[in-house]
Amino acid sequence: MGLRVIEVNHLTKLFGNAVAVNDISFSVEEGEILGFLGPNGAGKTTLIQLLLGLITATAGEIKILGIDLIKDREAILSQVNFSSSYVSMPTSLTLWENLSVFAKLYGIKNHEGKIDSLLTLFEINHLKDSLTRNLSSGQQTRLSLAKALLNSPKILFLDEPTASLDPDIADKTRTLLKSIRNKSRTTILYTSHNMKEMQEISDRIVFLDQGEIIACGTPNEIIQNFEEENLEDVFLKIARRKVENIE
């Protein structure tokens, strides 16, 4: 068994009377790619925000890299990073300026070489002096991913990172993320609505519904448990069962 880098115990989050996350426990090992799946409102984004300390938990414990999130959030945040297709970077700054600002925020020394190599890796080095507002949405996503890799994070939180990428760049991004995981044992937590992508990239999947874990295992284990042919069918089965229950 590998080193546990994330340990979540009995985590609960209530917004008033609404239960967003209901007494969930799980752990993630070093170098693992864990996918969060579930219908809209299942609690995926809330869970990622809880793990990043952007939302305060109602109950339960989160330990990341052995550190209690409540006790020393800054120590954790310097070793992890985050990218979401719903979050932008200042559009009036050039790519290089944006990455330079974040490199300093993450305390990266001699960051020029690191920025150049990341821009090259994401095939946007030729745009480094362009204003961010002039980038296509796919290029902006790649910039956001470059920002997320600036501090060579031990854990990477990715919220629908390929949502606005064309199939070619999305495929390259997945390959790249796998290669980063293989090279530096980076743990990746991933959300996406692209079932094929989740099946392809995830070592393990946590299936959430109404704030609870309803299934957890490798993609194949989950498909077999639900007696379906692929993850998309599992997803539809859960989502439609919910609709039938409501009706």
């Binding site: 800054e74 990073n81 993450y106």
Partner: peptide, 17 residues
């Protein structure tokens, strides 16, 4: 400016206090 540029989350997930 940080709100308008949707950069607030990037800042608050960084080690910035």
């Amino acid at each position: 400016e940080e709100v308008w540029s949707k950069n607030l989350l990037n800042l608050f997930v960084s080690p910035m206090r």
